[in-house]
Structures are given as C-alpha cells and as structure tokens.
Design a binder for these strands. Structure first.
Lengths: 252, 252
DNA sequence: AATCAGTATTGACCTGGATCAACAAAACAG
DNA sequence: CTGTTTTGTTGATCCAGGTCAATACTGATT
C-alpha cells in the first residue's frame, strides 16, 4: 500500500477539495454547521497520489472504508471464475467507491487507478457513527446508495451497442463536466467490458459516430459535436439521468 | 389504490410476519430490545391482499415508502421511451422494493403483483428518523442497499444465456427456500426480459436443461434434479451469492 | 531512429440468440 | 361444453455483434 494516510487539517482546503464531491450537498450548499463540517473532516483521511495502475483495494480485502475520488479516475472490476475481467464502473472526481462492500464486509471488486489519482478515505464505522448524529449525513448516504442502485439497474437492462455507447459518452461528458471536450481516460477494452461489448465494436462505433458527425475522435481525446443527436441515439439508456441532477447539466 | 393500510398491533404477530423478512437480522436473531421492536412496529403499515396484476406503485409516483413483501411475489419494471418493458427485479417474501426511489424521491419503476400478495409498508421519513435512533436499523438499511447494489452490478455483467438462466434458477430456488421443488410465479416473458433474453430462448433452454437432466419442467412447476450441475452451468453468474448468506443455503 | 509493447483500427467471417411464424396447451368466459 | 385469449413450445431464418487476423499508431527505451 503506497501513499500514506493523513488528516486533512484545514477547513477551507477541505471545502475546495469537496467542491465536486458527491457529499457536497451536505457539506456546502446545504450550509452544514461549521461544527459538523469539522466532525466530518475529523474522520476523513486522504490517500494519494496513487499512481496509474496502482490498486486502491482488491477483491477479497476486508472492508473498512469507502472512498471518494478527489482527483484522477479509477475503475472497479472483478475477475470471474474463468478469469474474465468485468469492469463494474468508472469513478471520476466527486464519486464514491466501495459502497457494494458494506453488506458483505469484504470487497466484492478491485479498484485500480486509471490515471494518477487521490482519494478521500471514509472509515465506514466512524462514518456510520457520525451519520447517526448528523441527520443530513445519514440521508445523504441513503441517497447515494439509492442512486448507484438506479444506475446499476439501468446498466443491466437490454440495449443495442449503439445505445450503450452513445449513453456512455453522454454520461462521461456530464460527469467530467468539461463541456463537450473530453478525455477518455480508460482504454477501449475497459469501455467495452463495462458496456458488455467487444473492443472492436467500440472502435467501429466511434468511427461511425465520427463519420456521421456526432463526435470527433482522436484516440483518447473526444469532442462532442452533436450532443442532442447522441442523446437521441442513446435513447432510454441513461447512465446519467440521476447523476446530472446533482451536477451541472450538459448544455447542447 | 385498493387495500387499506392499518397498524400491525401485536408483536408476536409481527414476529411471525417477519420470520423470513430481510430485516430479520435486526428484528429477531440479533435480539433487538423489545422497546425497539415496538418502535419499528409502530411505523410499519400493512397493505394487502393485493390481487395479481394490481400495482403497488407506478413509475413517476412520488416516493413515500419502501415495501417489504410479506406474502406472494411482485415484479418491478420500467417502460422505456420506445414502449419496451424492462423487468428490473422479482421480489419474494422477505425482500424489499422501492429502494431505488430514495434518491430521486420519485419512483423510477412500477411494481405489480405476480400473484396475490401482501406487503409491509415502511414510510421512508419515519423509517429514516427511527434509523437515527436505533443504531442497528441504520446499519441494516445500509447493508440492504449495498446488497441490492451488488446483485444489480452482477446482473449487469456479460454472460451467456445458459449462464444467466442457470444462475436465475439457482437464485429463485434459494430465495423461495422450498428446496428443489419450486414454482415459477412469473411468466416466461418476464424471466426473459429480466435476463435480457427472448422468451423463445428461455423456453428452449429450459427444454435443453430438462433433456440434459438438470431439471424437470412442467409449465410453471419446476424440480431441480442437479443443483450442483446447474451451479456449474451458472458459473460466475451469481444472483444469489449474497442473499443466501442471510438465508438458508440450498443443499444439493 | 530503431525496437518493442501496448493500444487502436479495420477487414473477413462466424455464431448465439433474436426474430418471425406456426402451433399447442392452459386458463378463462360464457 | 365451446370459443377466445393468454402463455408456452418449436422450427426456420436472419443479423448484431463477437471472434480471428492483419495492420497501424503511440510512447517509452535505449
């Protein structure tokens, strides 16, 4: 385990760090009492930088903390009995990881950095205790779990390759919040695994989307030229519907 | 809305009703204080009987309660933009519904009875308040949400039709807890939708499983003849892995 | 600047499971 | 009982997307 764990000491620094955090509704706009911010702060650790390719946790590790991405990106995945890797999700700044391990108290998947990343560490027992006392925190955790549940349920439904990829692009764009210019940090293979497609299919579809004027692709750099059209292609395959309610909606 | 809502008044009656409930770890084996049982009881309503085909809630309804199945079975589903129905889950006695609506505060799916059913009604606001005070209840809700998340994430992964159906049969058997003799309350069409297959594929696979001696099928009645074999066919497609940790494991 | 390894694209072909179509067996209504 | 509807099975065909194979591109290394 590289990257030591240390306390975040300065509230203003935390505020900055949490600007895009999934707990932001609690921390900032909802005007939590300074006292409560301090209490949350007191249990939040910080880990990083975590180099690209380094694991944050591995399948089978005993569950102790959940994590919030501060910077960079991670993916979660599991390896099945036949050795096939299944990408379960991508985690961008402000998003949480490890929620699915609460129940079994053992990590059900591994998390690895897709680029150099740093994360907030939220020790579950302490977070759970604190949620008991700070009313808004409990509800916020309920809501975050519920949201992930919806996203995951939607991902499980039946859609064509075209719908999946279009929906995915919209989702990444909305979540990375950088407008229509975005960087695909993850390799094609991971996108394909996440969407249950072959890498060749992803590649071909991107080529087609480009040819039809929806996007411009240069390797990992991608420019959305017709967001509305992509949204139409995506149809009901909405990976973002919920997340975007918290975050800045994508104009276009 | 048929079926009036009334208070469950007798603790022993509740104990009975909760015998197979997903909250049982809290209510019973973990020896919650009688006082706390009473408090939980005081907020739990009861609704039913709900006739086959009747809705418990519909997509778009404002979210107020989550539900626990007492008796019978329900399915949750949503209708996409093109009018296609996607079955999101089946809910057997002891299982919860509606958790995915916590976040958006609006139901993301509809729930309909597959057979005559009755449910416990857990008004979310009151449950949430109570979870604040009763320590074990908060953790239990976190765990149930986390569990559903794992199941849903697994359902979203990439598996063959054979793996899906075998995994599904194992899951239903374990959850209905009736050993190897089980009744498929839901029509083939719903199984197919849930597993992202065509009904014809489900039908053909069941025929093949029978021919190969794994099961015996008579319409909705099904007998598992080779549970270990089915488990092997299911491979890593484990819809049950987690649920079975709470419940009686399936021998065979 | 040549080598190598990892990643992405493109083409040719194949197949699992969808779709279409016809039929059978229950469930239900009168 | 007799139609009628709903649900399930089976066969024939088709195609979206997977697989296999060859070819680029990119970046890191020396």
């Amino acid at each position: 385990m590289s990257g030591r764990q240390r306390k975040v000491v300065c509230i203003t620094e935390l505020r900055q760090a949490c600007r895009t955090c999934s707990l932001q509704e609690l921390c900032l706009p909802m005007g939590l009492a300074a006292e409560d911010i301090q209490r949350l702060e007191s249990i939040v650790g910080h880990k990083g930088p975590l180099e690209r390719g380094r694991h944050l946790f591995r399948e089978g590790d005993p569950f102790q903390s959940i994590y919030a991405v501060r910077d960079g990106a991670l993916k979660t995945y599991s390896i099945d009995a036949d050795g096939r890797e299944h990408v379960l999700g991508f985690h961008l700044p402000g998003e949480l990881l490890g929620l699915d391990a609460i129940y079994p108290r053992v990590n059900r998947c591994s998390a690895v950095a897709l680029s150099n990343a740093s994360v907030c560490v939220l020790p579950y027992d302490r977070l759970s205790d604190l949620a008991h006392e700070v009313s808004g925190l409990q509800s916020q955790i309920f809501r975050l779990l519920s949201k992930d549940l919806s996203i995951s349920a939607n991902l499980a439904t039946d859609h064509t390759a075209e719908e999946r990829l279009a929906g995915f692009l919209i989702s990444i764009a909305a979540r990375s919040g950088a407008g229509t210019e975005l960087k695909l940090v993850m390799p094609r293979r991971d996108i394909a695994s996440y969407l249950r497609l072959a890498t060749e299919t992803v590649s071909r579809l991107l080529a087609r989307f480009q040819q039809e004027g929806y996007v411009e692709v240069h390797r990992k750099n991608l420019q959305l030229l017709n967001v509305e059209g992509l949204r139409r292609l995506g149809g009901s395959f909405e990976l973002t519907g919920l997340a975007s309610a918290i975050r800045r909606p994508l104009r276009g």
